[in-house]
């Protein structure tokens, strides 16, 4: 992956992402929702399948978010799939980054048998 490559070696001197190329949590959340809803619809929790699914969903979310063409962002995706059985679960995150330009989005899907949480972190990079 060669994010750092600049075409023709020209410098953009940009210090901030352009308004239309920003990481907007609402747009990203839509993409996460699409990826998870499509994959997990009508699924029952199955331990063997969960590993494959979590990787598949992570890749799908990443590709969807890449398609938003927010070029100067690095994208980090984490997916959690868990079985529902009355147990307590807590998923939390915190970051050390530039509050102005970096952002995150998350979405949780659940049915009677499982839950699936997708988290996306966008880190501005020039």
């Amino acid at each position: 992956m060669e994010i750092g490559q600049k075409d023709g070696g020209s410098n953009t001197y940009a210090l901030e992402p352009r308004e239309d190329k920003r990481f907007y949590p609402s747009k990203v959340k839509e993409e996460i929702k699409k990826a998870i809803d499509e994959t997990m619809k009508d699924k029952e929790y199955n331990h063997k399948e969960a590993e494959k699914l979590s990787i598949e969903i992570s890749n799908r979310i990443r590709d969807n978010v890449k398609n938003l063409s927010i070029d100067s962002y690095k994208i980090v995706v984490q997916t959690v799939i868990g079985e529902i059985g009355g147990q307590g679960v807590r998923i939390a995150s915190k970051s050390l980054w530039d509050d102005k330009n970096d952002n995150w989005a998350s979405y949780t899907f659940s049915n009677h048998s499982l839950f699936c949480t997708g988290m996306v972190f966008g880190i501005y990079y020039e």
Partner: peptide, 23 residues
């Protein structure tokens, strides 16, 4: 970015995976 998942044990399964688009 740090994430933390805590799940109570009662025999339920949990799976997590991560991918990234970076250097």
């Amino acid at each position: 970015v740090v994430t933390c998942i805590i799940q109570q044990k009662n025999g339920c399964g949990l799976q997590t995976a991560a991918t990234a688009f970076w250097k």
